[in-house]
Amino acid sequence: MMKHRLFWPLMVLVVLLLFNLIYSPDFFSIKMRDGHLYGSLIDILNFGSPLILVAIGMTLVIATGGIDLSVGSVVAITGAMACLSISRANDQNGLVAVLGAVGIALVLSAALGLWNGFLVARIGIQPIIATLILMVAGRGIAQLITNGQIITVLSPKYQYIGAGSLLTLPFSIFIVAAMFVIASLLTRKTALGLFIEAVGCKPTASRLAGVRSRTVMLAVYMFCGLCAGIAGLLLSSNVSSADGNNAGLWYELDAILAVVIGGTSLTGGRFYLAGTLVGALIIQTLTTTIYMVGVPPEITLVVKALVVLAVCLVQSEKFRGLLRGRPKAGPLQTANPEVKRHA
């Protein structure tokens, strides 16, 4: 069982959750209040949903051997766009206004993803640079849209997306579940997953085998943009406002981390959506834990970094071998006896 890919990430998640029991004995309790379920676990799922969404898209991009640094900016842009369009409507709570805003935001996010894909697949810019462009410019665009202000909207219908609940659970959980299922079906029930892995592992060989690698990349970046767009809607609707400056800030880093913790290699090739899900939950739990334990704000990032380092080390087979005192060959191994040389 310890050989299973998800074993160590799941162990880390369980340990993190159990750790919270020390500080809050009712951490695992879920209460029913006014027809809604409340509890820390629900909160983790709810607040973690934007990150999970972004990480799902990121997984596929990373599987093609790329990376998308612009997701945080796309989160900000779509939130800003949706709020702007609602705030301009006569009736901010009108169904048409809200659906229109959501539609505009989603189309825009897909277009932004397509732009990244175009730069990478058509122009041939390295993914880290190509998406860095939108990462930097995107913040500016978001602030242009909001005119440097925080746009606040008064629309219960819009708010429902990120803060409403359905069948006693936060609505955002359903959105995430749907996107996760869609991504899984798209990649495992069609041949898309095979193509993504082939392109990520060996682009030249894949092209010669007839895989349309450019189209695959375009699709993947577009999907990633779309995921970030939905995350942007969740975030902005949850607080009924759009902040071009801070919405989705550093999301790209958390998302990349979640993907890597989940077992997908940054070099591309094999990818694991379920692993990414666990990875994103680990990061969200960690964030929640840090607030719960009451770590002073000035050192929260340091604590987070240390835990992430520990997670990565626990997952490394080489490191575990080192702990057991049975070192295997590899860069981590330093305590190896020097090869005997004879003068």
């Binding site: 095979l194 892995e197 030249t204 060989a205 094999r270």
Partner: peptide, 19 residues
């Protein structure tokens, strides 16, 4: 330009047909 290292023998065989 030939093999895709990380994929299985089965996946390598069907790749061109699937493409």
């Amino acid at each position: 330009e030939g093999i895709i290292d990380d994929l299985t023998v089965r996946e390598n065989i069907v790749l061109a047909l699937q493409a």
